[in-house]
Design a protein around this nucleic acid. Structure first.
Lengths: 233, 233
DNA sequence: ACCACTGTATGGTCAGACCGTACCGAATAC
DNA sequence: GTATTCGGTACGGTCTGACCATACAGTGGT
């Protein structure tokens, strides 16, 4: 079975080459958020490929949350570099949950892990908690389960933001987003949200006082209250 | 400023509609991994759109790791539903790191969080550690930093796998993958890997004995050894 | 100074064509 | 009968060239 000397001529698709070249340019030219990419037609001409291939590469970059395309003319038009990792992650989770290649339990466990970590680090960093407080009062004013969950999500995402880690905050956002439907059901099933209110206050106080261990415990207890069927040991 | 009765005709792009319909079909028909999607030409004809729009939707699904396209004919050809969340996450991290919208420190902190969680859960679940042991012996045979890091990555990903959470395992894989270059540098700077070897053995033993707290501590100490500049408190 | 009109560069969409690939099946060879 | 060969065909991959909607940049009139 010796080597016959023949090799496949090409394995990468054109749009993948385009993608690689765009990525290289971003690295070499030090492009950052807000900078513009060349127009599709120009890029196609300079790279010697069709506009379709450039467009497919753009679609990939858009899916991954690094570019945003606007039609028209002027400074805001064209393909602009952005940073939206959370929308990409949200799509990723939603599709894989729909495919049943991920189970809700796995998403909730991941959320549990992240919330504990974020609360602990927010406490250690003595982070500003004004966003937490405002989400808390939003929950008090909520009249429906949907409204409650909306502010609840804001509260927990604010904890992730306060941890100072944008990657973890982005993952947190997408986890909450993809669980939104189930969170509403859980709140409706619970009925009384006063226990959750007390939990939230306890988390907020722990972070305010910089007590990391207490913040971790408070988050864990809170999730056990919110999802008794999953965390009722 | 009353309503003048006119509305924008269309807000969503064609490929987004295609995407939504494919997603709906996946949910309604209960499609799962391994099932095939209609051919691009058929889909274009049935949806009344051009093939380009269908292709852009396909590219998005491929980017998110839910379909894989193969040319040719037969049962393996066409767009097949798959589940590759880790490749999507890897691309996401790489691009956002390149854009400087994420910093290495954030990635390493996230890895720290996941590793502790995974080791703790693997220990609690009394998971099978044969994959860990084999990665360990691979590290002993490694002759270069690259080889060492390869088996080291396998070791730590095996812990994540052993935790039983596929989402967290996928995130772990992509984190390690996007950090690969820096891991090699860290090993080269360290020179002697005997400390790491002892750390790995300690982690393995703790998981074997089902001691979750000790596994968590062992992982934390290990990362402090591997990245003294970042974790040397 | 203001305003309406036109030019133009941009992304969005489409139709149609051609290529390479890989299976399928019929004709052929043994 | 079985094995081999070879054309047909259903795929994705790519390209071309066209047209549309959008929204800024001038331009010119008031």
């Amino acid at each position: 079975m010796a080597d016959d000397g023949w090799r496949p001529v090409k394995r990468t698709r054109t749009f993948e080459d385009v993608l690689a070249q765009i990525e290289r340019r971003i690295a070499e030219d030090g492009l950052t958020v807000g900078d513009r990419l060349p127009a599709e037609r120009h890029l196609a001409g300079q790279l010697g490929v069709s506009r379709s291939s450039v467009r497919e590469a753009m679609r990939v970059l858009e899916t991954l949350g690094v570019v945003s395309s606007q039609a028209g003319r002027g400074p805001d038009a064209g393909a602009v570099l952005t940073s939206r990792p959370d929308t990409a992650l949200t799509d990723l989770l939603r599709l894989h949950l729909g495919l049943a290649s991920l189970e809700l339990r796995e998403v909730i466990d991941a959320r549990h892990m992240i919330e504990q970590w974020a609360a602990s680090h927010a406490a250690t960093a003595r982070a500003d908690t004004s966003a937490l407080a405002s989400a808390l009062s939003g929950m008090d004013r909520a009249r429906t389960a949907e409204e409650f969950v909306e502010h609840d999500t804001a509260f927990h995402c604010a904890i992730a933001d306060a941890s100072g880690n944008r990657l973890i905050a982005a993952i947190m956002r997408s986890l909450r987003h993809s669980m939104r439907k189930y969170a509403v059901e859980a709140v409706e099933r619970l009925g009384d949200t006063s226990i959750l209110r007390a939990d939230h206050q306890r988390i907020l106080d722990a972070i305010d006082r910089g007590e990391a261990a207490e913040a971790t415990r408070a988050v864990s207890d809170h999730l056990a209250h919110a999802y008794p069927s999953l965390f009722g040991h």
